[in-house]
């Protein structure tokens, strides 16, 4: 990220100097930064409403229900998860409901529990790798932030992207799961 920002700034300011528009640099920087406030304000509606609704969902036990539904699939993906299994399923359930903030603490707890039974500290176990890969490709059941930002930017069809988004993230998650299963199987047959 550091390199990306540095590149954008150096290239932007450099080209302005060369093309003689360097006086506009400060104005562009400041208007860009205040655009950030606008973006946050545009997101605020989606964040406030969805985080409110999702907290209702959590209080109603929806994460627990979903994590119970996920548990057979998880036994296949994480055969040696042991006591980390509950945290893993809560992490994935929260991610699927689009509650990234609720998901992270569960994910970190799962990592810690997995690490406790790690025979080689510093080397990721199969379960740790799988947890990471599934988190890095996570299937969200409804992309609320995205739809909210689209709507507040004046889209007449904010929901038009939902189906392709779900299909595409499903494909990514499927690939992630297949790769994890292949790698872990290979490791087990070798050992």
């Amino acid at each position: 990220m550091n390199i990306v920002i540095l590149f954008l700034l150096l290239a932007g300011i450099g080209v302005s100097l060369l093309s003689g528009t360097a006086d506009g640099v400060l104005a562009a920087l400041q208007s860009g930064a205040s655009d950030a406030i606008n973006t946050v304000l545009r997101l605020s509606g989606a964040y406030l409403i969805w985080m409110g609704l999702l907290n209702i969902a959590e209080k109603a036990g929806l994460i627990r229900t979903l994590s119970r539904l996920l548990s057979p699939a998880l036994s296949l993906l994480f055969p040696n998860a042991g006591k980390a299994k509950e945290a893993i399923s809560l992490n994935l359930a929260a991610n699927m409901l689009g509650m990234g903030n609720a998901a992270t603490p569960y994910g970190l707890r799962a990592m810690r529990l997995l690490n406790e039974s790690n025979p080689h500290p510093g080397v990721a176990t199969n379960e740790m790798c799988t947890l990471l890969v599934v988190n890095a490709s996570c299937l969200e059941l409804f992309p609320a932030t995205l739809v909210g930002l689209r709507a507040s930017c004046g889209s007449v069809r904010p929901l038009a992207v939902v189906v392709p988004t779900l299909l595409s993230s499903f494909a990514a998650t499927l690939v992630a799961v297949m790769l994890c299963l292949t790698f872990t199987r290979q490791c087990r047959s070798r050992s």
Binding site: S19, L29, G32, D35
Partner: peptide, 23 residues
Amino acid sequence: MKTILPTLAVFSAAMAVFRASGA
């Protein structure tokens, strides 16, 4: 929103210069 604002601001500012300059 407080956490994401600084990142948004840096990136938007850098992007604005990058775009306005013609780069």
